[in-house]
Design a protein around this nucleic acid. Sequence first.
DNA 1: CGTCCACAGGAATGACGGGCGG
DNA 2: CCGCCCGTCATTCCTGTGGACG
Length: 413
Amino acid sequence: MERRIDILDNVFAHFLKGSRVFRNREVLRHDYVPDYLPHREEEILRLGEITAPTLRGSPCSNVFIYGKTGTGKTAVAKFVLNRITQKAKEINSQVRVCFVNCRLAGTEYRILAALCSSINERVPFTGLAVGELFDRFRKSLESQGVILLAALDEIDALVKMRGDTLLYELTRINESLNRSKVSIIGISNDLKFKEFLDPRVLSTLSEEEMVFKPYTAEELQDILMERAKIAFHEGVLSEEALKLCAALAAAEHGDARRALDLLRVAGEVAERRGDTKILEEHVREAQKRIEHDRVYESIKSLPTHSKIVLLSALILSRFDSDHSITGEIYNLYSELCEQLGMSPLTQRRVSELINELDVMGLLNSRVVSLGRYGRTKKISLGIPRKIIIDVLSEDEILKDMLNYKPRFLSSLQ
DNA sequence: CGTCCACAGGAATGACGGGCGG
DNA sequence: CCGCCCGTCATTCCTGTGGACG
């Protein structure tokens, strides 16, 4: 059944787009879970062993999975959960599984709602108090007498925004359940995450721990190769291009997600140019494009005042040497605010904004002492001028200020 | 060697908006 | 549904500081 739909999808896509590069672009998306996960056999086995008891109706140890982005945590968890579901159906076992992405869910309410729906407890989208929802969840569990295996992905996001109360409740829920049990698989890409947790929650939650190591370049090659077979038409992807994708991603964090993005965008670049083979140059172009898009978006979504600070740095970079200092930036920033009819923020705040832009890589700033002439930050642009100009010239408020001449120009030279 | 510049950056506090609990 | 609380952004006030200059 599924297979037939897949085939048709490909036919439609091919017919509509007439792609000579892609056979099935979908498999390069990072939310796609392939049938085979290269170099994660051990992890799959381990997680399988830990969770297997649920199949015969016993609870299993809670597991905590750590690892940087793109190390296969989510894929492995989904993979194992899928297999458990399959097996449970076969042998008619009373195990239920639930996979929730805490960051996407956003609130405790929606996470609980997802847990409820996995045990067929229907709850309203909104309206109930979280405590009420929790009671319903517990009652429903108890009356059904099932084992629930719940995977909480990006669990660090939940704790960062809401604290660990929900986790605390969830880890304690088994104490009040007789016929049912809940086992939790927590997934986090923040390795320091433990420190934010109540020690009691932590010890309950991490009865078992798994750490996912970054992929090596060779491992990434295998992953890409598997996907490429499905994603591209035969002979489209050159070996050098594939190796380059793997190498670039390995240099970053061993991030499979990044590797797949590179491959997909490289395919798109080739397609757009009308080429039928993906070469190294397409990958390099893809890398540029991904980086460009990232920077472009981050500038575009900046608050207005941060944009003005960035614009000040841009304008100042035309004069003087390649760096300016906090005071100069602040003077020009104030001037620009005046021109725009806005009231400027304080220097203290602007200093903070500069730090934020520095963290984002849009500016480089470092503290220096100029001796008799004070202590300040030397600030330079962290990205090509062109990108800033591109984004800001689309900005309704700031587009006319790109060629602004600072009044205190004379004092600069 | 002390001074003093031009800020860095911490702490306390206020304004505001959105979500949570009752 | 409403009030309260909490997080975010911003201001105010402040103490700290590396090193050129005299």
